[in-house]
Simulated assay, not measured.
Amino acid sequence: MSSIESGSHRPPIVGTPSSDGARWDGRWLDETGTAHFAQRLAASPAITNATLTLAGDLGAGKTTFVRHLLRALGVQGRIKSPTYAVVEPHRAEAGPHGALSAWHFDFYRFGDPREWEDAGFRELFASPGLKLVEWPERAAGLMGAVDAALTIGPEEAPGDDTDFTDGPRQVTMQAFTDTGRRLLAALNT
């Protein structure tokens, strides 16, 4: 589905903040909407030292969002899913906020909390930079403070059991800290 429907242009990202400003609910009509959402977050200086969790079923679009966000922050080269490696480090040398370190975690296969210490994750989460965490519930109680949680899911029509791999997404972002609220503010500019 494109952002142009029925002959009229519709924005690829549509959303509204909650009344308390701690939550944003919206939708991505297509991958262009995902990219626009990522670009808005990347424009906020708060992203440079944030921890974001990403929730959604397999195929929801979590890694696609991460790729768009890291590109918008100036990361060059291949951006692959850390599904088997658990973490992929990234570095932007000349992004919109200067040099930036980022780590993309995927705890889908994470099973033993002792791995946390052995792998040095405590040090990574304590260091400056962006942390993007897929399947955070598998590392519950081990991560530090989370600034914001992004939940992505398919937009389903009632009674429709179609594969929504490329369809619109319902998106919610909830802020838990001042950093998270600054990120939410970037979505409303």
Rank of each mutant, 00 (worst) to 15 (best):
Thr172Met: 14
Thr162Arg: 15
Asp161Gln: 06
Arg122Gln: 12
Gly141Trp: 13
Val133Gln: 08
Glu123Tyr: 04
Lys131His: 11
Ala139Met: 02
Val146Met: 11
Ala175Gln: 00
Ala149Asp: 15
Val146Gln: 04
Leu130Cys: 09
Glu137His: 12
Glu134Trp: 05
Ala149His: 15
Ala140Asp: 03
Ala157Pro: 00
Gly129Tyr: 01
Phe125Gln: 06
Ala148Asp: 04
Trp135Cys: 02
Pro128Arg: 04
Gly167Asp: 15
Ile152Phe: 04
Asp147Met: 12
Thr177Ile: 05
Gly153Ser: 12
Pro168Lys: 11
Glu156Phe: 09
Val146His: 07
Gln170Thr: 14
Phe125Tyr: 10
Pro136Ala: 05
Asp160Met: 00
Asp160Phe: 00
Pro136Trp: 01
Ser127Met: 13
Thr172Cys: 15
Trp135Arg: 01
Pro128Thr: 02
Glu137Val: 12
Glu117Met: 03
Ala126Leu: 09
Phe164Gln: 09
Lys131Trp: 07
Ala175Ser: 05
Arg169Pro: 05
Val146Gly: 10
Trp116Pro: 05
Ala119Ser: 12
Ala145Phe: 03
Pro128Gly: 02
Asp118Arg: 15
Gly141Ala: 11
Ala140Pro: 01
Glu134Phe: 07
Ile152Met: 09
Thr151Ala: 12
Gln170Trp: 15
Trp116Tyr: 04
Gly159His: 12
Pro128Asn: 04
Thr165Gln: 05
Leu130Gly: 10
Leu142Gln: 11
Val171Ile: 12
Ala145Asn: 12
Gly120Met: 01
Glu137Ala: 15
Ala119Asp: 11
Phe164Asp: 09
Ala148Thr: 09
Glu123Cys: 06
Ala139Trp: 00
Arg122Phe: 10
Asp147His: 14
Phe121Asp: 03
Ser127His: 09
Val133Ser: 08
Arg169Tyr: 07
Ala148Arg: 00
Asp118His: 13
Pro168Asp: 15
Met143Lys: 01
Met173Arg: 03
Val146Thr: 15
Gln174Asp: 11
Glu117Val: 08
Thr177Tyr: 06
Asp160His: 08
Asp163Leu: 06
Leu150Pro: 01
Phe176Val: 00
Asp163Ser: 07
Thr151Pro: 06
Ser127Gly: 14
Leu130Ile: 08
Pro158Ile: 06
Asp160Leu: 00
Glu134Gly: 03
Pro158Arg: 06
Ser127Thr: 11
Leu132Cys: 05
Leu142Cys: 09
Phe121Asn: 04
Val133Leu: 10
Pro136Asp: 01
Arg138Thr: 03
Asp147Ser: 12
Pro158Cys: 02
Thr165Phe: 08
Ala157Gln: 15
Thr177Asn: 00
Val146Asn: 07
Ala157Gly: 11
Trp116Met: 07
Gln174Leu: 09
Gly153Trp: 05
Pro136Thr: 00
Glu156Pro: 05
Thr172Leu: 14
Leu124Thr: 15
Gly144Phe: 09
Ala126His: 10
Thr177Leu: 02
Ala119Phe: 13
Pro154Ile: 13
Glu134Tyr: 05
Leu132Lys: 00
Leu130Asp: 03
Ala139Phe: 00
Leu132Arg: 01
Ala175Glu: 07
Gly144Arg: 06
Glu155Trp: 10
Lys131Tyr: 01
Met173Ala: 08
Pro168Ile: 12
Phe121Lys: 09
Glu117Gln: 05
Glu123Ile: 08
Ala119Pro: 06
Gly167Glu: 14
Phe125Glu: 08
Pro168Ser: 13
Ala145Pro: 14
Asp161Ile: 07
Gly120Asp: 03
Glu155Thr: 13
Phe176Leu: 01
Ala145Cys: 14
Pro128Phe: 00
Val171Ala: 03
Lys131Thr: 10
